[in-house]
Each structure stands twice: as C-alpha cells, then as structure tokens.
Design a binder for these strands. Sequence first.
DNA 1: TTTTTTTTTGCAATTTAGTTGCATTATTTT
DNA 2: AAAATAATGCAACTAAATTGCAAAAAAAAA
Lengths: 126, 126
Amino acid sequence: MGIIRKTKSVKILLNEFSADSTAISVTTLIERLSSEMNKTTVYRILDKLEDDGFLHSFLGKNGHKWYAKCNNCSKSKHYDTHAHFQCLNCGKVDCLTTNFTIPEIPNRRVDVFQLLVQGSCEDCLV
Amino acid sequence: MGIIRKTKSVKILLNEFSADSTAISVTTLIERLSSEMNKTTVYRILDKLEDDGFLHSFLGKNGHKWYAKCNNCSKSKHYDTHAHFQCLNCGKVDCLTTNFTIPEIPNRRVDVFQLLVQGSCEDCLV
DNA sequence: TTTTTTTTTGCAATTTAGTTGCATTATTTT
DNA sequence: AAAATAATGCAACTAAATTGCAAAAAAAAA
C-alpha cells in the first residue's frame, strides 16, 4: 500500500514521531489527536507509515499496539531484530539499540521474534 | 487468590493441560469447552490456576492470551525466563526449554521479559 | 444429615482495541 | 477546470476480556 499523499493528517502524525525515538501507543495517539482526526484515520495512517518503513510496530505487555520510528528499515524489510523496553515505573517505552541474536533452537527454524523487556529506565533508576 | 475448590469446571480445565505441554489459547479453550462451561468461568479459572503456579500465561503474536503448564513455578514466583515458540505453519505454540538470559542493558534494570519466537516447528520442517 | 456460610458459576450487559462499508471531502492527474 | 483517484469521517460492527448480580454448588458448621 504505502503513503501516497502527504495530507494534513499524515503530517500531524509524522510530527508526533519527530521529537524523540520513544514509542507511542495507538490509544495514546488517538486520544492526543482526537480533536484533529478520527481514530480510523490514525489506524490507517500508522498502517501505511509502517508499510513505508517509516515506523515499526510491536505489542506492549497488554497486547496493545505501539509504534516507533524506524532507523534502518525500508519498504521491503523491517530490521526488527531489536527489543523494546518498557519502564514499569514511568511507563515509557523505547527501542533498544542492542541487536539480539536468538540462539539456535534444536529442530526448529527461527524466522522472527519479538522481545519485550520490562524494568526500570535510566530516568527512574535511583 | 488461588484455587479454593476443586469443582467440576476446574477439573475439566486441568485435564486440558494434562496431556502434553503445548500451550492453548484462551479462545480455543472457550470454544472447545463451550458445551461444558461459560467463557467467564474459563477466564476466571485460568486466572486462578495461574495464581496457583499451575499455569503461566503469555501473549501470542496478535496479543491474545495463551496458557501453558508450569514446570517449576510456585504461588510466589513464576519462572518465566523461557521463550515461547509459535509455528507459522501449523500454529502450534509451546514452551522452549532453553532458558534465555537477557544481556545487561546500560543504565537500565531488567525485571522481566517476554520472548515470542516464530518459525517452523520440528514436525513442519521438511 | 441437615443447615448455614462461602465460593463458584452462568448470564447478560459492558468495555475497549481494532476493523469495515460507504458517502463525502481532499488531493493529484489530465 | 474537470476528471480520476485516494483519504477521511462517521456509524456500525467484531472480538477479547471484564463486571455485577442472582442462582447454584461446594465446604463448613451444627
């Protein structure tokens, strides 16, 4: 699919991810932008931004969707071999720069994996 | 909370996990046991069996809940340092016996993690 | 065993994330 | 400017999970 038109809504959403590389949950975006666009639009644009390799998505601990900016992704391939870290204290979620390698598993072929790490972030560590 | 009474419904559910150690999704259980108990009961009993350390839960790729038998868990502590493997071919999900160690992450304290690996299981590998 | 207390269950209603169809509006192409 | 195409809003819908409450079942007390 991919983004075709740079509409007002697309620009607003892109802007949300321009600040830092912290991940944002879909529900947060829907609430934050409720006066500017419909939730359906949020879902659809995020979907396309992911297809375009500008964002990538993953599921938080409760199974809800989060999005974050991509660093080295393209239309054809998402480099999702990184983990996501959720701070149990402040709730902030971000991408870890560490690239994980999943060890070989006997008699199985590993295609993809999803790793969500939870703990305390640098700001919340005493 | 924990299990207090060994009711008929509890026995039926325990029985579902007695066979092998393959994980079962909540929706599968609800459908499979629809003639024997209400879905609310399924949710509630699974919840208690997890509290009791008999089952542990995790989220599948779509964010839906799965349960599997515990091996070394107790009421107070779940030894969830293992990954779950979902076969993209047959859909089967099971616990990997390999215990993963998440490497140290600079300036962060890691408390828990969730690792879902997807690929091809031993039965589905040619 | 019978009565009383407490827990469990079923049912219906509710919540919430996410999706879909369709008419309207905006953007791009001609 | 007109025509073609894509994006948006809205309402309705789907599905997983939760909640309140009355009825039923299990355990404890008598």
